[in-house]
Design a protein around this nucleic acid. Structure first.
Length: 504
RNA sequence: GCGGCUAUAGUUCAGUGGCAGAACGCCGCUCUGUGGCAGCGGAUGUCGUGGGUUCGAAACCCACUAGCCGCCCCA
């Protein structure tokens, strides 16, 4: 039977990767909290109309990348309603902001979200059809100061802090202003005019853009078109006095906070709602993203609330591509080793299984991370499994249960000691076994052989024979010296060593 | 959506038309309460799916699916 697999562009996130995901999200929550942001969770699907009006009918996202379907409710009201899996989260946040009258308290709202988004694109590394974004929005009525350049700089400074705390290396902040909605409109017209006489010289993609979205011609990567693009009017020539002042204030505040940035006059964001400040954080080549090197993007959206039928509520926000952030952290080798459990409880036989589970229960209740083995395993398997999973192993056999004294192995030190039941918890909570306790170091194979009465093939197990056969010359010397020290050797011929093919 | 590369064991991969392979990992034994090393043994599998060519296909051809790379776009 054909197995069912995750659909194209979606994927499962498994341990140990999820450790990193949780660390990233915990770090983000911690940083956001320090800047006064509260979490918002909006539905993963919304009325299609929201994205058409908010993101822009002409954008690629809305025109060809949305997962859209017609609802089939019983009620007349929802039958046939067009619904869409959210391709981004800003429109949903602003919709909720309007719907819950959050503008009415006159305060600045600072909201963050962490959640999956959906776009039907061709999957690639760092680009998935279900992908995760960590984003935040600052918005409010004009009198709350929501359109102040201070907020732009605060958001950018917060992002710099977040990336630094996560340990992202070599990030680069590209900054631009696309001007007010009016500036942008005038610029768009001017671009169209400037492109008209030359656009037949552009590549096919750019000819199309010249018609549909002339701003996007600016960040084309086509090398043949660069000369024409360089000759086009600059957005800065179309900034109003307010737009220019606002941008200067953002830059001044970033300078004051020592947040490095690079002005990029060609940085125009694809979504229709952006006004004035736009920005993008990228990472250098070799950070695991290939050409998809944008980690996050965002900007100001002073008119979005009104576009969605709400009150005047300027805002600024960003979305971090969490999948890309994770890839970058992994490529930059920041992946944490999976944390080991505190203890592994190893029952010696199935008869000790119940007692072992009970001991694990007590330790877990005391807050320790504990895994339990199985009495049907050989001790060797318990050791191997325990060493992979935990820092220490407790042997639970008949002797231990009878005497209430347990054998505890510390893998980090190779030490082993006997601990009474009452001391057990304390012993396990210590980072490593105390030196004040009587530590019993495991005997090496050589030491064990040194204590054997006679070393002759007939008297040795196959295991010991194999060990002997594989001793290096220096190990053989050590063995002989040990035996002489122990007074075992009357004659050196008591040691048989096949590797040297002599009687020593 | 467009162009290209790839798909074989749990993993990484070899295998250019003639018995399905290696390494690592896994399991067992040597070794019944002291592991990690070593030796020996074992299981890995619809060779992505479906069709075609051929006496014979993992290999050649076609389609599909998925991943990756670039473009488009974007996080």
């Amino acid at each position: 039977m054909a197995t069912i697999k995750a659909v194209r562009g979606t994927r499962d996130l498994l341990p140990p990767d999820t450790i990193l995901w949780n660390r990233v999200e915990a770090t983000a929550r911690s940083v956001f909290a320090r800047y006064g942001f509260g979490e918002i969770r909006t539905p993963v699907f919304e009325a299609t109309e929201l994205f058409a009006r908010g993101v822009g009918e002409e954008t690629d996202i809305v025109s060809k990348e949305m997962y859209t379907w017609e609802d089939r409710g019983r009620a007349e009201s929802d039958r046939g309603q067009s619904l869409t899996l959210r391709p981004e989260n800003t429109a949903g946040v602003v919709r909720a902001y309007i719907e819950h009258g959050m503008a009415d308290n006159g305060m600045l709202e600072k909201l963050f979200y962490i959640g999956p988004q959906f776009r039907r694109e061709r999957p690639q590394r760092g680009r998935y059809r279900q992908f995760w974004q960590i984003g935040a929005e600052v918005l409010g009525p004009p009198w709350s100061g929501s359109d102040s350049a201070l907020r732009d700089a605060e958001v950018l400074e917060m992002l710099a802090t977040l990336l630094n705390e996560l340990g992202i290396e070599g990030w680069r902040l590209a900054l631009n202003s696309v001007g007010s909605a009016e500036d942008r409109k005038r610029y768009s017209v001017a671009l169209r005019e400037a492109l008209e006489p030359v656009k037949h010289n552009l590549c096919e993609d750019n000819q199309r853009r010249a018609e549909t979205n002339p701003l996007r011609v600016l960040d084309s990567k086509d090398p043949g078109d660069q000369e024409i693009i360089n000759g086009l009017p600059k957005i800065s020539e179309f900034w109003s006095e307010d737009s220019r002042t606002h941008f200067d204030q953002v830059k001044a505040a970033l300078d004051a906070c020592n947040v490095p940035y690079v002005e990029d006059p060609r940085l125009v964001r694809g979504l229709d709602y952006y006004t004035r400040t736009t920005f993008e954080f990228t990472v250098p080549d070799g950070s695991g993203l290939g050409t998809q090197n944008a980690l996050l993007g965002g900007g100001r959206y002073d008119g979005l609330s009104e576009m969605l039928g709400g009150p005047k509520a300027p805002g600024i926000g960003f979305a971090i591509g969490e999948d890309r952030l994770i890839l970058t952290l992994q490529a930059q080798a920041k992946e944490a080793e999976p944390a080991k459990l505190d203890a592994f409880v190893a029952p010696m036989g199935v008869g000790q299984n119940a007692a072992a589970l009970k001991l694990a229960q007590e330790l877990r209740r005391a807050g320790l991370g504990v895994e339990v083995g199985d009495g049907s395993w050989r001790l060797k398997k318990s050791f191997e499994t325990a060493d992979k999973l935990a820092r220490k192993m407790i042997i639970v056999g008949e002797d231990e249960l009878a005497s209430d004294v347990f054998t505890v192995k510390d893998f980090s030190k190779g030490e082993q000691l006997k601990v009474s039941r009452t001391e057990l918890l304390e012993t396990l909570q210590r980072p490593s076994l105390s030196t004040s306790s009587v530590a019993v170091r495991k005997k090496s194979n050589i030491e064990r052989l040194a204590e054997a009465s006679v070393i002759k093939p007939d008297d040795l197990s196959k295991h010991d024979q194999a060990i002997l056969e594989n001793l290096s010359d220096s190990e053989v010397q050590t063995l002989i010296q040990l035996r002489q020290k122990l007074g075992k050797e009357k004659a050196s011929s008591d040691i048989w060593h096949p590797g040297l093919d002599i009687n020593l």
